[in-house]
């Protein structure tokens, strides 16, 4: 059976999925990137290799996320696409008719407006990461509650407190203040959920036409408190797809399927890539005052990719070596 591999390597999590021809997700993994994208991808692929059933064949592979280029160099990919496109593709396939996609991940959040199954508009958070998963993680840790309990506790709130959500630093001091005043935990957590949603809609969602069906995906969609806050703010039902936490990877697999639709052979290097010894290094090129930080990926003794140079001379030198071989 032909399968499609999708890998989404983000700042916080690395998601790997395997999908069949009918868009059924066969295997899915949610790993923490922990600052080591190469090792995490290799570990995930190794794990996945062990789960393969006889007869499953990787027909094509796709990567997305901020480490999509790095990942494609390591495992070989037929499609290397940005996460906005990947999320949009996944949502249109898994939730037909969706008109708005709210996505909140570890460090970024985006909104994608779909009309007739096509992206009509999108926005991504800028430098500010207030209201993303990392902040919720951090607050849960500070309050000493497991992140899984965050949502359910927030749902118990009777009268959520008002928390300033514009900036996570101020939100935190505001929360501490409310807690010292004697408000109970569930009211504070529900207040935080509302603040995050307000912040999201005012920044990322500013000026966007949000129509239902609304799909909420990304790791934060696991938080029922946030879901409820979205529903109250938007006054529409918010759907959470089954594979909400790995939608980027699903999109990458769908894009890979499209990339080989005309019968092209796959660029996927196979699961052996998980065994190979990859090293990433960097150096500062001093040939001009730009002082580019050049990234260098080596497999064993051989340099297989370089990037980060504005003039591309280092990047091209690898390609030249390759074509010479």
């Amino acid at each position: 059976m032909n399968c499609f591999l999708g890998v989404d390597v983000g700042s916080v999590s690395t998601n790997i999925i395997l999908m069949d021809e009918e868009t059924n997700v066969l295997e899915s993994m949610y790993l923490r990137t922990q600052g080591k994208p190469i090792v995490t991808v290799q570990r995930g692929l190794q794990d996945l290799a062990g789960r393969l059933k006889p007869g499953w064949h990787i027909r094509a592979a796709g990567t997305t996320g901020s480490a999509r280029h790095l990942t494609s160099v390591i495992m070989g990919a037929d499609s290397v696409k940005n996460e906005i496109t990947a999320h949009a593709v996944a949502a249109t396939h898994l939730v037909p008719g969706a008109q708005t996609v709210l996505e909140i991940g570890g460090q970024d959040s985006k909104i994608i407006v779909l009309r007739n199954g096509v992206v009509a508009d999108f926005a991504m958070n800028t430098v500010c990461a207030a209201g993303t998963g990392s902040f919720l993680d951090q607050q849960a840790a500070r309050l000493n509650i497991p992140i899984e309990d965050f949502g359910p506790i927030a749902l118990e709130a009777k009268s959520p407190v008002r928390i300033a959500g514009r900036c996570s630093v101020f939100a935190e001091s505001d929360m501490i203040h409310k807690q010292q005043m004697g408000h109970n935990l569930s009211d504070i957590l529900a207040g935080l959920c509302e603040a995050l949603v307000r912040n999201y809609l005012n920044n990322v969602g500013k000026g966007k036409e949000i129509l239902g069906p609304v799909v909420f995906q990304g790791g934060v969609a696991a938080n029922v408190g946030i879901k409820k806050a979205f529903e109250e703010a938007l006054e529409v039902e918010v759907q959470i797809p089954k594979h909400y936490d790995v939608m980027g990877a699903v999109g990458a697999a769908l894009l890979a399927r499209e990339a080989v639709a005309k019968g092209q052979p796959s660029k996927f290097k196979g699961f052996e890539a998980a065994q190979e010894d990859y090293r990433a290094g960097s150096f500062e090129c001093g040939d001009c005052p730009n002082l580019c930080e050049v990234i260098e990926i080596a497999a064993g003794e051989k340099t297989i990719a370089r990037w980060g140079d504005r003039c591309s001379k280092w990047a091209n030198s690898v390609m030249a070596e390759e074509s010479a071989v």
Partner: peptide, 29 residues
Amino acid sequence: LTIDEHTGEAGIVTRLEAFVDMIRWKAVS
């Protein structure tokens, strides 16, 4: 798009790619 003194290109590239994808996708549909 907003540019500042940071040199990180990833954010700009992601948005540009998605923007161009969006336009092409629309044209195809």
